[in-house]
């Protein structure tokens, strides 16, 4: 049990507990704050895998920008426990079925992985070494092998941005 293991178990527990709290919290603001904590734990995992760039970008983009916008919307809607309306029974039923389907497929993936894992048995993920997640390697990969998908996805972002401006514009 070295320090990497301790950190791994701590971060995993933190991520699971916070993710649970996101669902359980009555107050949507608290849910969002727990979700931010989940992102922190996941960033911690990235750092353990020596993917510093991914870790930081995860924090900047998700915890720093997207969650702020989530908070924005929820704060403006002023959702409180008292004003939360009772949901339709059918709505709840659909939610249960959809969640159940997701659970089944996730379990399927895990069990399949177990049969695959015989050849991976005894192997662990690269910890604290390897340069796959460092920014230099990532940049070279993105701009040489994957340059076309990368550029196309940036065009996608641009079109989304133009769409947002068009929708938001008062005429």
């Amino acid at each position: 049990m070295n320090i990497t293991h301790i950190l791994f178990w701590f971060l995993s527990a933190l991520a699971l507990v916070s993710a649970m709290m996101v669902v359980v919290s009555k107050n949507p603001i608290h849910s969002i704050l727990w979700l931010i904590l989940v992102f922190f734990a996941i960033s911690g995992h990235y750092i353990l895998l020596n993917a510093q760039f991914l870790a930081i970008v995860n924090l900047i983009v998700y915890a720093g920008a997207i969650m702020v916008l989530f908070l924005f919307v929820v704060m403006l809607m002023n959702l409180n426990k008292e004003t939360e309306q009772q949901k339709n029974v059918w709505m709840k039923l659909t939610g249960v079925i959809a969640g159940g389907c997701f659970l089944v497929s996730t379990c399927n993936v895990i069990f399949n992985a177990q049969s695959v894992s015989r050849e991976l048995a005894g192997k662990t993920a690269l910890m604290k070494e390897g340069s796959i997640g460092l920014i230099g390697t990532l940049g070279k990969a993105l701009f040489s092998n994957y340059v076309i998908p990368f550029e196309i996805s940036s065009v996608l972002f641009l079109s989304a941005m133009v769409g947002a401006v068009v929708i938001g514009k008062k005429d």
Partner: peptide, 10 residues
């Protein structure tokens, strides 16, 4: 420098 950005956004 990205670390600084992450902290500032927090």
């Amino acid at each position: 420098i990205l670390y600084i950005f992450a902290v500032v956004s927090l």
